[in-house]
């Protein structure tokens, strides 16, 4: 019977084996490699598993955080608008707009908007009347403006007032101040303890001791 030539069992012709056959012999290169891998691979697998489980707990991960309500920057006011324009209508349906460089409403409970650099424009029967003041507060519910500092009222007559606080009621179109006031009217400069009048300057009452310097015919009041 012909002996099947076993490529790897031929002990007699060892020197006649090919490289591949030599490597495949027991104890050859392939065996050592497999023996090595037999313990290396499980160890690697275990190491990777360990890494997955242990690593998240050991290191302090710096990017995760707990959102604390008090630590977060809370805006103090409820509403802040820059270059705000507020369009409204008086009870009689006359439109008015209030524009301001800055408008802040402290909280929703208080219906007052604090304005800086404000200019109120009212549509009137005989032309618009504008009220300009450096700062003031707008009472939303009753359409009332309370402004501080020099107030300019431009309209057909056009006059200016300077007083601590000037109340302007957009509904009744009246301007009044209880604090000492100075101002200029078309006919001259005045100062008084109190003053009230309509926005257009049709009728103005200054009392509590008032002084009016009527402009001379040729020169201005201050001549």
């Amino acid at each position: 019977m012909a002996t099947a030539s076993l490529p790897y069992g031929a002990a007699d012709g060892a020197h006649a084996l090919t490289a591949r056959q030599r490597a495949a012999r027991p104890g050859g290169a392939h065996d050592t490699r497999v023996r090595l891998l037999k313990w290396l691979l499980p160890v690697l697998a275990f190491a990777v598993l360990a890494a997955i489980v242990i690593v998240p707990m050991t290191k302090v991960s710096e990017f995760s955080f707990l959102l604390a309500k008090d630590k977060v920057g809370v805006a103090a006011e409820r509403l802040r608008i820059d270059n705000a324009v507020y369009r409204g209508e008086t009870e009689k349906g006359e439109a008015f707009t209030i524009s301001a460089q800055g408008a802040v409403q402290r909280s929703s409970a208080v219906a007052i908007v604090e304005l800086t650099g404000l200019k109120a424009k009212l549509a009137m029967a005989d032309g618009p009347a504008t009220v300009t003041a450096p700062a003031g507060r707008y009472f939303i519910e009753n359409d009332r403006l309370q402004v501080t500092g020099p107030v300019r009222l431009d309209s057909t007559a056009g006059y200016t007032l300077d007083s601590d606080t000037v109340d302007i009621d957009l509904n009744t179109r009246r301007v009044s101040t209880e604090t000492p006031v100075t101002g200029t009217l078309p006919i001259g400069n005045f100062s008084a303890a109190r003053m009230s009048g309509d926005i257009q300057g049709r009728t103005l009452v200054m009392d509590g001791g008032a002084h009016l310097r009527i402009r001379g015919r040729t020169g201005r009041a201050g001549r």
Partner: peptide, 12 residues
């Protein structure tokens, strides 16, 4: 010339 007026009450 300008006129200076003092009064308790002024109504323009």
């Amino acid at each position: 010339a300008p006129v200076d007026v003092d009064a308790a009450r002024i109504e323009v």
